[in-house]
Design a protein around this nucleic acid. Structure first.
Lengths: 185, 185
DNA sequence: TGCTCCATGTAACACGTTACATGATTGC
DNA sequence: GCAATCATGTAACGTGTTACATGGAGCA
Protein backbone atom coordinates (compact mmCIF):
# COMPACT_ATOMS: atom_id res chain seq x y z
CA UNK A 1 0.00 0.00 0.00
CA UNK A 2 2.30 2.64 -1.31
CA UNK A 3 0.04 4.96 -3.29
CA UNK A 4 -1.65 6.04 -0.07
CA UNK A 5 1.72 7.05 1.33
CA UNK A 6 2.73 8.86 -1.82
CA UNK A 7 -0.50 10.84 -1.60
CA UNK A 8 0.11 11.59 2.09
CA UNK A 9 3.58 12.91 1.26
CA UNK A 10 2.23 15.06 -1.52
CA UNK A 11 -0.52 16.42 0.72
CA UNK A 12 1.99 17.26 3.45
CA UNK A 13 4.00 19.23 0.93
CA UNK A 14 0.86 21.10 -0.04
CA UNK A 15 -2.83 20.50 0.87
CA UNK A 16 -4.83 20.26 -2.33
CA UNK A 17 -7.80 18.89 -4.19
CA UNK A 18 -7.81 15.45 -5.80
CA UNK A 19 -7.64 17.04 -9.20
CA UNK A 20 -4.58 19.13 -8.32
CA UNK A 21 -2.95 16.11 -6.72
CA UNK A 22 -3.45 14.08 -9.88
CA UNK A 23 -1.79 16.80 -11.92
CA UNK A 24 1.07 17.34 -9.51
CA UNK A 25 1.62 13.61 -9.47
CA UNK A 26 2.22 13.73 -13.21
CA UNK A 27 5.23 15.91 -12.66
CA UNK A 28 6.83 15.08 -9.35
CA UNK A 29 6.20 11.85 -7.44
CA UNK A 30 4.64 10.52 -10.64
CA UNK A 31 8.13 10.24 -12.13
CA UNK A 32 8.70 7.39 -9.69
CA UNK A 33 5.19 6.33 -8.82
CA UNK A 34 2.60 6.94 -11.51
CA UNK A 35 -1.11 7.03 -10.70
CA UNK A 36 -4.28 7.93 -12.59
CA UNK A 37 -6.85 10.34 -11.20
CA UNK A 38 -9.23 7.43 -10.53
CA UNK A 39 -6.70 5.73 -8.30
CA UNK A 40 -6.11 8.97 -6.47
CA UNK A 41 -9.80 9.65 -5.84
CA UNK A 42 -10.27 6.09 -4.60
CA UNK A 43 -7.30 6.42 -2.29
CA UNK A 44 -8.43 9.80 -0.94
CA UNK A 45 -11.87 8.37 -0.12
CA UNK A 46 -10.28 5.42 1.72
CA UNK A 47 -7.87 7.59 3.65
CA UNK A 48 -10.61 9.95 4.73
CA UNK A 49 -12.61 6.94 6.01
CA UNK A 50 -9.47 5.78 7.84
CA UNK A 51 -9.06 9.17 9.51
CA UNK A 52 -5.68 9.87 7.94
CA UNK A 53 -6.87 12.98 6.12
CA UNK A 54 -9.82 15.35 6.20
CA UNK A 55 -11.48 17.48 3.55
CA UNK A 56 -13.08 20.90 3.51
CA UNK A 57 -14.47 23.25 0.91
CA UNK A 58 -11.75 25.76 0.15
CA UNK A 59 -12.32 29.54 -0.06
CA UNK A 60 -11.83 29.57 -3.84
CA UNK A 61 -14.34 26.79 -4.51
CA UNK A 62 -17.17 29.00 -5.68
CA UNK A 63 -19.96 26.81 -7.02
CA UNK A 64 -17.63 23.96 -8.00
CA UNK A 65 -17.45 20.61 -6.22
CA UNK A 66 -13.85 21.31 -5.30
CA UNK A 67 -12.59 19.84 -2.02
CA UNK A 68 -9.30 20.40 -0.27
CA UNK A 69 -7.59 17.61 1.65
CA UNK A 70 -5.30 18.02 4.65
CA UNK A 71 -3.25 15.40 6.50
CA UNK A 72 -4.37 14.62 10.07
CA UNK A 73 -1.95 13.60 12.84
CA UNK A 74 -2.94 9.95 12.35
CA UNK A 75 -1.89 10.24 8.70
CA UNK A 76 1.44 11.76 9.60
CA UNK A 77 2.12 9.02 12.13
CA UNK A 78 1.20 6.37 9.60
CA UNK A 79 3.55 7.90 7.02
CA UNK A 80 6.46 7.92 9.46
CA UNK A 81 5.71 4.34 10.48
CA UNK A 82 5.68 3.22 6.83
CA UNK A 83 8.78 5.18 5.83
CA UNK A 84 11.16 3.35 8.15
CA UNK A 85 9.63 -0.04 7.42
CA UNK A 86 11.91 -2.35 5.51
CA UNK A 87 10.97 -3.19 1.91
CA UNK A 88 12.71 -4.82 -1.04
CA UNK A 89 14.51 -2.42 -3.39
CA UNK A 90 12.94 -1.52 -6.72
CA UNK A 91 13.13 -4.13 -9.42
CA UNK A 92 13.49 -3.67 -13.11
CA UNK A 93 10.25 -4.49 -14.93
CA UNK A 94 10.70 -3.99 -18.61
CA UNK A 95 8.29 -5.36 -21.17
CA UNK A 96 10.73 -4.61 -23.95
CA UNK A 97 13.22 -7.15 -22.56
CA UNK A 98 10.52 -9.78 -22.98
CA UNK A 99 10.06 -8.65 -26.58
CA UNK A 100 13.78 -8.95 -27.18
CA UNK A 101 13.80 -12.49 -25.85
CA UNK A 102 10.85 -13.23 -28.10
CA UNK A 103 12.83 -11.78 -31.01
CA UNK A 104 15.83 -13.91 -30.09
CA UNK A 105 13.75 -17.07 -30.25
CA UNK A 106 11.47 -16.12 -33.17
CA UNK A 107 14.01 -14.12 -35.22
CA UNK A 108 11.30 -12.96 -37.57
CA UNK A 109 10.41 -9.58 -36.12
CA UNK A 110 12.14 -6.21 -36.53
CA UNK A 111 12.35 -4.31 -33.27
CA UNK A 112 14.44 -1.46 -34.66
CA UNK A 113 11.59 1.02 -35.25
CA UNK A 114 10.34 0.53 -31.71
CA UNK A 115 13.87 0.86 -30.29
CA UNK A 116 14.39 4.10 -32.19
CA UNK A 117 11.11 5.41 -30.82
CA UNK A 118 12.15 4.48 -27.27
CA UNK A 119 15.51 6.15 -27.76
CA UNK A 120 13.84 9.42 -28.68
CA UNK A 121 11.51 9.19 -25.68
CA UNK A 122 14.37 8.49 -23.27
CA UNK A 123 16.39 11.39 -24.67
CA UNK A 124 13.39 13.66 -24.30
CA UNK A 125 12.82 12.63 -20.71
CA UNK A 126 16.50 13.01 -19.89
CA UNK A 127 16.55 16.51 -21.38
CA UNK A 128 13.48 17.34 -19.33
CA UNK A 129 15.08 16.13 -16.09
CA UNK A 130 18.29 18.02 -16.85
CA UNK A 131 16.29 21.19 -17.47
CA UNK A 132 14.58 20.78 -14.10
CA UNK A 133 17.97 20.23 -12.48
CA UNK A 134 19.46 23.36 -14.06
CA UNK A 135 16.43 25.38 -12.98
CA UNK A 136 15.96 24.09 -9.42
CA UNK A 137 19.47 23.08 -8.34
CA UNK A 138 21.97 25.47 -9.90
CA UNK A 139 24.42 24.85 -7.07
CA UNK A 140 25.06 21.81 -4.89
CA UNK A 141 26.33 23.66 -1.83
CA UNK A 142 24.40 25.77 0.64
CA UNK A 143 21.09 24.04 -0.03
CA UNK A 144 18.63 22.99 2.65
CA UNK A 145 18.30 19.38 3.71
CA UNK A 146 14.96 19.23 1.92
CA UNK A 147 16.39 20.55 -1.36
CA UNK A 148 19.42 18.27 -1.28
CA UNK A 149 17.24 15.19 -0.85
CA UNK A 150 14.95 16.33 -3.65
CA UNK A 151 18.02 16.79 -5.83
CA UNK A 152 19.17 13.22 -5.19
CA UNK A 153 15.71 11.94 -6.14
CA UNK A 154 15.94 13.82 -9.42
CA UNK A 155 19.44 12.44 -9.96
CA UNK A 156 18.09 8.93 -9.69
CA UNK A 157 15.78 9.72 -12.61
CA UNK A 158 18.63 11.26 -14.58
CA UNK A 159 20.85 8.23 -14.00
CA UNK A 160 18.10 5.89 -15.08
CA UNK A 161 17.43 7.78 -18.30
CA UNK A 162 21.12 8.11 -19.10
CA UNK A 163 21.49 4.37 -18.69
CA UNK A 164 18.45 3.79 -20.86
CA UNK A 165 19.74 6.07 -23.61
CA UNK A 166 23.17 4.43 -23.65
CA UNK A 167 21.79 0.91 -23.65
CA UNK A 168 19.18 1.64 -26.33
CA UNK A 169 21.84 3.09 -28.61
CA UNK A 170 24.04 0.05 -28.20
CA UNK A 171 21.11 -2.30 -28.80
CA UNK A 172 20.09 -0.41 -31.95
CA UNK A 173 23.64 -0.67 -33.18
CA UNK A 174 23.67 -4.42 -32.63
CA UNK A 175 20.37 -4.94 -34.45
CA UNK A 176 21.73 -2.93 -37.42
CA UNK A 177 24.78 -5.18 -37.52
CA UNK A 178 22.70 -8.35 -37.31
CA UNK A 179 20.34 -7.13 -40.03
CA UNK A 180 23.11 -6.25 -42.49
CA UNK A 181 26.09 -8.54 -42.00
CA UNK A 182 29.16 -7.85 -44.19
CA UNK A 183 27.50 -4.81 -45.71
CA UNK A 184 30.51 -3.40 -47.62
CA UNK A 185 30.08 -3.60 -51.48
CA UNK B 1 -1.17 -8.63 -21.25
CA UNK B 2 2.53 -9.25 -21.06
CA UNK B 3 2.90 -12.20 -18.71
CA UNK B 4 1.22 -14.46 -21.25
CA UNK B 5 3.82 -13.43 -23.81
CA UNK B 6 6.69 -13.90 -21.40
CA UNK B 7 5.42 -17.42 -20.74
CA UNK B 8 5.06 -18.11 -24.48
CA UNK B 9 8.66 -17.01 -25.02
CA UNK B 10 9.88 -19.20 -22.21
CA UNK B 11 7.92 -22.19 -23.53
CA UNK B 12 9.33 -21.70 -27.01
CA UNK B 13 12.82 -21.78 -25.55
CA UNK B 14 11.93 -25.03 -23.79
CA UNK B 15 8.58 -26.80 -23.33
CA UNK B 16 8.05 -27.42 -19.63
CA UNK B 17 5.68 -27.84 -16.73
CA UNK B 18 4.16 -24.92 -14.85
CA UNK B 19 6.37 -25.70 -11.91
CA UNK B 20 9.56 -25.66 -13.98
CA UNK B 21 8.43 -22.49 -15.70
CA UNK B 22 7.92 -20.78 -12.37
CA UNK B 23 11.42 -21.72 -11.30
CA UNK B 24 13.06 -20.77 -14.59
CA UNK B 25 11.22 -17.46 -14.40
CA UNK B 26 12.98 -16.75 -11.14
CA UNK B 27 16.32 -16.78 -12.88
CA UNK B 28 15.89 -15.55 -16.44
CA UNK B 29 12.88 -13.60 -17.65
CA UNK B 30 12.04 -13.06 -14.01
CA UNK B 31 14.93 -10.59 -13.74
CA UNK B 32 12.82 -8.27 -15.90
CA UNK B 33 9.33 -9.60 -15.40
CA UNK B 34 8.68 -11.26 -12.08
CA UNK B 35 5.74 -13.63 -11.59
CA UNK B 36 4.59 -16.00 -8.87
CA UNK B 37 3.64 -19.60 -9.56
CA UNK B 38 -0.05 -18.75 -9.06
CA UNK B 39 0.08 -16.18 -11.83
CA UNK B 40 1.81 -18.64 -14.11
CA UNK B 41 -0.70 -21.44 -13.51
CA UNK B 42 -3.56 -19.02 -14.13
CA UNK B 43 -1.96 -17.81 -17.33
CA UNK B 44 -1.24 -21.34 -18.57
CA UNK B 45 -4.89 -22.31 -18.03
CA UNK B 46 -6.06 -19.25 -19.96
CA UNK B 47 -3.67 -19.79 -22.83
CA UNK B 48 -4.66 -23.43 -23.15
CA UNK B 49 -8.32 -22.36 -23.34
CA UNK B 50 -7.33 -19.78 -25.98
CA UNK B 51 -5.59 -22.44 -28.05
CA UNK B 52 -2.14 -20.83 -27.81
CA UNK B 53 -0.56 -23.80 -26.04
CA UNK B 54 -1.39 -27.45 -25.40
CA UNK B 55 -0.45 -29.83 -22.60
CA UNK B 56 0.38 -33.48 -22.37
CA UNK B 57 1.62 -35.88 -19.72
CA UNK B 58 5.37 -36.21 -20.18
CA UNK B 59 7.22 -39.54 -20.18
CA UNK B 60 8.87 -38.80 -16.83
CA UNK B 61 5.61 -37.97 -15.06
CA UNK B 62 5.26 -41.29 -13.23
CA UNK B 63 2.33 -41.02 -10.83
CA UNK B 64 2.68 -37.24 -10.37
CA UNK B 65 0.25 -34.65 -11.74
CA UNK B 66 3.01 -33.21 -13.92
CA UNK B 67 1.98 -31.70 -17.26
CA UNK B 68 4.14 -30.40 -20.05
CA UNK B 69 3.12 -27.40 -22.13
CA UNK B 70 4.06 -26.74 -25.77
CA UNK B 71 3.39 -23.65 -27.90
CA UNK B 72 0.90 -24.11 -30.76
CA UNK B 73 1.15 -22.17 -34.07
CA UNK B 74 -1.57 -19.79 -32.85
CA UNK B 75 0.59 -18.97 -29.83
CA UNK B 76 3.62 -18.34 -31.97
CA UNK B 77 1.63 -16.03 -34.25
CA UNK B 78 0.25 -14.16 -31.26
CA UNK B 79 3.74 -13.69 -29.82
CA UNK B 80 5.07 -12.28 -33.10
CA UNK B 81 2.05 -9.95 -33.37
CA UNK B 82 2.59 -8.68 -29.84
CA UNK B 83 6.37 -8.29 -30.16
CA UNK B 84 6.23 -5.69 -32.93
CA UNK B 85 3.36 -3.81 -31.35
CA UNK B 86 4.30 -0.37 -30.07
CA UNK B 87 4.32 0.16 -26.30
CA UNK B 88 5.63 2.85 -23.94
CA UNK B 89 9.17 2.27 -22.63
CA UNK B 90 9.67 1.01 -19.09
CA UNK B 91 9.18 3.52 -16.33
CA UNK B 92 10.95 3.80 -13.04
CA UNK B 93 8.73 2.72 -10.16
CA UNK B 94 10.59 3.01 -6.94
CA UNK B 95 8.88 2.97 -3.58
CA UNK B 96 12.05 4.13 -1.89
CA UNK B 97 11.91 7.47 -3.72
CA UNK B 98 8.51 8.02 -2.12
CA UNK B 99 10.06 7.26 1.27
CA UNK B 100 12.81 9.76 0.61
CA UNK B 101 10.28 12.45 -0.22
CA UNK B 102 8.45 11.54 2.96
CA UNK B 103 11.74 11.88 4.84
CA UNK B 104 12.36 15.27 3.20
CA UNK B 105 9.04 16.59 4.45
CA UNK B 106 8.91 14.80 7.83
CA UNK B 107 12.65 14.93 8.68
CA UNK B 108 12.13 12.67 11.65
CA UNK B 109 12.99 9.30 10.17
CA UNK B 110 16.38 7.69 9.57
CA UNK B 111 16.57 5.91 6.23
CA UNK B 112 20.26 5.03 6.50
CA UNK B 113 19.84 1.44 7.74
CA UNK B 114 17.43 0.69 4.92
CA UNK B 115 19.73 2.34 2.36
CA UNK B 116 22.68 0.29 3.58
CA UNK B 117 20.58 -2.85 3.24
CA UNK B 118 19.59 -1.90 -0.31
CA UNK B 119 23.21 -1.19 -1.19
CA UNK B 120 24.23 -4.69 -0.14
CA UNK B 121 21.36 -6.23 -2.13
CA UNK B 122 22.24 -4.25 -5.25
CA UNK B 123 25.89 -5.21 -4.98
CA UNK B 124 24.93 -8.84 -4.56
CA UNK B 125 22.67 -8.77 -7.61
CA UNK B 126 25.32 -7.00 -9.66
CA UNK B 127 27.93 -9.59 -8.69
CA UNK B 128 25.48 -12.31 -9.65
CA UNK B 129 24.84 -10.77 -13.08
CA UNK B 130 28.56 -10.29 -13.68
CA UNK B 131 29.18 -13.92 -12.79
CA UNK B 132 26.55 -15.01 -15.32
CA UNK B 133 28.16 -12.76 -17.91
CA UNK B 134 31.62 -14.19 -17.30
CA UNK B 135 30.23 -17.71 -17.50
CA UNK B 136 27.91 -17.39 -20.53
CA UNK B 137 29.51 -14.64 -22.61
CA UNK B 138 33.29 -14.88 -22.29
CA UNK B 139 33.75 -13.24 -25.70
CA UNK B 140 31.67 -10.71 -27.59
CA UNK B 141 32.67 -11.76 -31.11
CA UNK B 142 31.64 -14.87 -33.03
CA UNK B 143 28.49 -15.41 -31.04
CA UNK B 144 25.15 -16.32 -32.56
CA UNK B 145 22.38 -13.77 -33.03
CA UNK B 146 20.47 -15.40 -30.20
CA UNK B 147 23.40 -15.23 -27.77
CA UNK B 148 24.26 -11.63 -28.63
CA UNK B 149 20.71 -10.51 -27.95
CA UNK B 150 20.64 -12.44 -24.69
CA UNK B 151 23.90 -10.76 -23.72
CA UNK B 152 22.42 -7.30 -24.31
CA UNK B 153 19.45 -8.19 -22.11
CA UNK B 154 21.83 -9.18 -19.33
CA UNK B 155 23.77 -5.95 -19.87
CA UNK B 156 20.61 -3.97 -19.24
CA UNK B 157 20.38 -5.62 -15.84
CA UNK B 158 24.04 -4.94 -15.14
CA UNK B 159 23.68 -1.30 -16.09
CA UNK B 160 20.65 -0.92 -13.86
CA UNK B 161 22.36 -2.45 -10.85
CA UNK B 162 25.53 -0.44 -11.41
CA UNK B 163 23.45 2.72 -11.48
CA UNK B 164 21.61 1.64 -8.36
CA UNK B 165 24.84 0.89 -6.48
CA UNK B 166 26.39 4.23 -7.42
CA UNK B 167 23.30 6.21 -6.54
CA UNK B 168 22.72 4.40 -3.25
CA UNK B 169 26.32 5.06 -2.18
CA UNK B 170 25.99 8.76 -2.95
CA UNK B 171 22.66 8.96 -1.12
CA UNK B 172 24.08 7.21 1.93
CA UNK B 173 26.97 9.66 1.91
CA UNK B 174 24.58 12.61 1.83
CA UNK B 175 22.48 11.28 4.71
CA UNK B 176 25.66 10.83 6.78
CA UNK B 177 26.61 14.43 6.09
CA UNK B 178 23.14 15.71 6.99
CA UNK B 179 23.07 13.67 10.20
CA UNK B 180 26.46 14.93 11.44
CA UNK B 181 27.12 18.47 10.20
CA UNK B 182 30.56 19.96 11.01
CA UNK B 183 31.72 16.73 12.63
CA UNK B 184 35.42 17.58 13.06
CA UNK B 185 36.47 17.78 16.77
C1' DT C 1 7.14 -41.37 11.16
C1' DG C 2 7.89 -36.84 9.75
C1' DC C 3 10.44 -33.62 6.79
C1' DT C 4 11.43 -31.43 2.48
C1' DC C 5 10.77 -30.99 -2.31
C1' DC C 6 7.85 -31.66 -6.47
C1' DA C 7 3.58 -30.32 -8.58
C1' DT C 8 -0.92 -28.17 -9.16
C1' DG C 9 -4.30 -25.62 -7.87
C1' DT C 10 -8.58 -22.38 -5.30
C1' DA C 11 -10.06 -18.13 -3.10
C1' DA C 12 -9.95 -13.66 -1.64
C1' DC C 13 -8.21 -9.44 -1.95
C1' DA C 14 -5.29 -5.34 -3.36
C1' DC C 15 -3.86 -2.52 -6.93
C1' DG C 16 -3.92 -0.61 -11.68
C1' DT C 17 -6.35 0.49 -16.20
C1' DT C 18 -10.00 1.86 -19.24
C1' DA C 19 -14.28 3.59 -20.35
C1' DC C 20 -17.89 6.30 -19.23
C1' DA C 21 -20.84 10.00 -16.73
C1' DT C 22 -21.78 14.51 -14.87
C1' DG C 23 -21.85 19.27 -14.35
C1' DA C 24 -19.69 23.91 -13.66
C1' DT C 25 -16.40 27.52 -15.46
C1' DT C 26 -13.53 29.87 -18.90
C1' DG C 27 -12.37 31.61 -23.36
C1' DC C 28 -13.35 32.24 -28.27
C1' DG D 1 -23.24 28.81 -28.54
C1' DC D 2 -19.43 25.55 -28.33
C1' DA D 3 -15.20 23.65 -26.99
C1' DA D 4 -11.75 23.07 -23.62
C1' DT D 5 -10.60 22.68 -18.96
C1' DC D 6 -11.77 22.08 -14.06
C1' DA D 7 -13.48 18.76 -10.82
C1' DT D 8 -15.35 14.49 -9.03
C1' DG D 9 -16.82 10.32 -9.44
C1' DT D 10 -18.90 4.90 -10.89
C1' DA D 11 -18.27 0.47 -13.01
C1' DA D 12 -16.01 -3.19 -14.99
C1' DC D 13 -12.17 -5.52 -15.73
C1' DG D 14 -7.24 -7.12 -15.73
C1' DT D 15 -3.20 -8.05 -13.18
C1' DG D 16 -0.50 -9.05 -8.99
C1' DT D 17 -0.25 -10.73 -4.05
C1' DT D 18 -1.17 -13.62 -0.11
C1' DA D 19 -2.91 -17.41 2.20
C1' DC D 20 -4.30 -21.83 2.08
C1' DA D 21 -5.18 -26.78 0.29
C1' DT D 22 -3.82 -31.20 -1.60
C1' DG D 23 -1.17 -35.13 -2.48
C1' DG D 24 2.87 -37.94 -4.19
C1' DA D 25 8.10 -38.91 -3.91
C1' DG D 26 12.42 -39.35 -1.58
C1' DC D 27 14.96 -39.60 2.47
C1' DA D 28 16.59 -40.03 7.38
Amino acid sequence: MSLAHAVLTSLLEKPSSGYDLARRFDKSIGYFWHATHQQIYRELARMERAGWIESSIPADAGKTRKKEYRVLPAGRTELARWAVQSAPPAELRDEFMVKLRADAVLSEVDLRPELARHLALHQEKLAHYLAIEARDFPTTRTLSRHARIQHMILKKGILFEQGSVAWTQEMLCLLEQLAAPAAHP
